[in-house]
Amino acid sequence: MTTILDKIIAEKRTEVLRLKRESTQLSFEVSEKPSLFEKLKNSKNLQIISEIKRSSPSKGIINSSVNPANQALQYAKAGAACISVLTDTPFFNGNFQDLKDVTQIVEIPVLCKDFIIDKVQIDFAKAHGASVILLIVAALSKEELSNLYQYATDQGLEILVEVHDEEELKVALEIDAKLIGINNRNLKTFEVDLRNTEKVAKSFPFHENRVLISESGIKDSNDAKFVAGIGASAVLVGETLMRSGDIESTLHSLQVPKGVVRL
């Protein structure tokens, strides 16, 4: 049975061919951003990675009229630790221009949120100003993940490695990932269960120099307190902020104190 993830990856293979044809036009004059890892590691409160997302396969249109630069400024002003920009077009209605518009207007870290399967996508992310990229364990073989992780590291980028279960967490640890995101959304069914963070966090090496980020399904302060209590240093929040009529208030409500990790 073909999953949503399968369809996205198939589309990415076609996109990669196009990007390779266009890669000769890339310029890499980008500004430096502060370290997301250091920000999350040293913060006493749960930090927010605020996402710019027009739509998704599971939710449809979320906010089609959003101005990425304006949204990013509101996120930064409200105290976001990082801004995530979806650059996938067919499934999320994002693009690399959105990423460039955001990176040129904010000074905080910016994450290129995409389904990366090839080095050329990393090149485009960096050229458009990203300081952080996403690598999804479920979308890559161990060899592909390791090679892309090393390539991005060599480019001076930080890497958020996304996992969905304990086995994928082991893979992330094998490549020595520092920023590890636990996605509460099943990428095969797109169903969300916040307790996935709790389940996977039981195997997370909190005593090591790493940070845990809970992704998807964070709606309010109760959800924030829940994941903070099981060791999350940050949450990645898209839909809740994209639909909010008061971004500053919503974001502040999620910045709860970090919990004491129960090892």
Rank of each mutant, 00 (worst) to 15 (best):
T2C: 08
K7H: 09
A10Y: 09
R13S: 06
R13V: 13
T14D: 14
K20W: 10
S23D: 11
L26M: 05
S31Y: 14
S31T: 15
E32A: 12
P34E: 10
P34M: 04
F37D: 08
E38S: 13
L40C: 05
S43D: 11
N45C: 05
E51D: 12
I52W: 07
I52Q: 05
I52G: 04
K53P: 00
R54C: 02
P57G: 01
S58W: 01
K59S: 06
G60A: 07
I61Q: 06
I62H: 05
N63C: 08
S64Q: 14
N67F: 10
Q74G: 07
A78L: 08
G79V: 09
C82Q: 10
S84L: 06
P90V: 03
N95Y: 11
N95T: 13
D101K: 15
P109F: 09
V110H: 06
L111N: 11
D114W: 01
F115H: 06
D118G: 02
K119F: 10
Q121E: 08
F124T: 10
F124A: 03
K126D: 01
A127Q: 00
H128K: 15
G129T: 07
V132R: 14
V132L: 14
V132K: 13
V132Y: 14
V132S: 11
L135A: 05
I136G: 13
S141C: 11
E143L: 09
E143D: 12
L145I: 09
N147M: 13
Y149V: 11
Y149L: 11
Y151G: 12
Y151K: 12
T153R: 10
Q155N: 12
Q155F: 13
G156A: 12
L157W: 14
I159T: 14
L160S: 08
V161C: 02
V163I: 15
E166W: 02
E166F: 10
K170T: 13
A172G: 07
A172S: 10
L173P: 04
D176K: 15
A177S: 14
K178W: 04
L179A: 04
I180H: 03
N183T: 05
N184P: 06
R185F: 03
L187K: 01
L187I: 01
K188Y: 06
T189S: 01
F190V: 01
F190T: 02
L194G: 02
R195L: 15
N196L: 09
E198R: 12
P205L: 04
E208V: 04
E208L: 09
N209C: 04
R210D: 07
V211K: 14
V211S: 11
G217A: 08
I218H: 00
I218T: 06
D220I: 02
D223R: 11
V227M: 07
G229I: 09
A232F: 06
A232Y: 05
A234V: 02
V235P: 00
V237L: 10
V237E: 00
M242W: 03
E248V: 01
E248T: 08
E248H: 04
S249Q: 15
L251W: 05
L251F: 06
H252A: 13
Q255M: 15
V256E: 03
